[in-house]
Design a protein around this nucleic acid. Structure first.
Lengths: 126, 126
DNA sequence: ATCAAAGTACGACCGTCGTCAAACTTTGAT
DNA sequence: ATCAAAGTTTGACGACGGTCGTACTTTGAT
């Protein structure tokens, strides 16, 4: 049956700052949020670049959903993820934008991918 | 000796988003930040309203300091705490403001002090 | 009907973190 | 010199959470 295929999503009024922070404090989950924030549309669970196993990823998506940060729905066998951007911004103005902006900046300087190479292509940092 | 009385403070350039979020995700520490944000000046460790023991408070202040969120200095036997507001806003624009704003709103609706009687009288329970 | 793909659910493991009490240090007042 | 106030340090404890592998479910294609 497809009963539990419609997971529970918290109402926007029941979203708490504590849960939102608990969600985005994890680097994997924050990466998911950042990827969704910059994407043009929704993304399937398998469409993210994540350094964890599938079962762990499921755990993270569930945490994000229960915190109220994402909305999940099925499309075939794929589970799509949508960022609840406007709703979050309604209850916590500026929070998501500030975190995503900070996160993007952090990833620039955090993953120095061994510039051993001679690649001059787009080495622009700044 | 007063050597270790000058605790280490990270340079603003070494402040990371991960540490900042790890710091403010804890409700006690976030409360400290919020109180500092709304204060007119610096506050001694003992000047905060915190629901934990002194040793635990020390631990939280240290975490905040090492994350780069506060600056600590002595004034007699009291250790003063200053929010590194401008510096944080420089590296993570809007983050502190968004979190503090959200936190204030949360505390409003988080401690419903038994609104049983819609009385205008402050039902002080403490 | 069969099979592969995409996720989920369930335990288990283990490190981290928040918590406290007790002992200690430094400072300032008497 | 003595004492109190303000924090710190240390060690211990317990809970929570991120991780994985395995088994399972649902869907869509053959």
């Amino acid at each position: 049956m497809e009963a539990d295929r419609i997971p529970h999503h918290p109402d926007v009024r029941t979203i708490t700052l504590q849960r939102v922070l608990d969600a985005i404090v994890d680097p994997v989950r924050r990466s998911i949020v950042t990827q969704l924030y910059g994407a043009s549309g929704d993304i399937a669970c398998g469409g993210f670049d994540l350094p964890v196993s599938k079962s762990t990823a499921t755990h993270h998506f569930r945490t994000l959903r229960e915190a109220g940060l994402i909305r999940q729905y099925y499309a075939g066998t794929s589970r799509m993820n949508a960022l609840r951007r406007d709703e979050i911004d309604e209850v916590f103005p500026g929070l998501l934008a500030a975190v995503v902006t900070a996160d993007r900046g952090s990833r620039e300087t955090a993953n120095p991918p061994e510039p051993t190479g001679q690649g001059l292509s787009a080495a622009g940092s700044g």
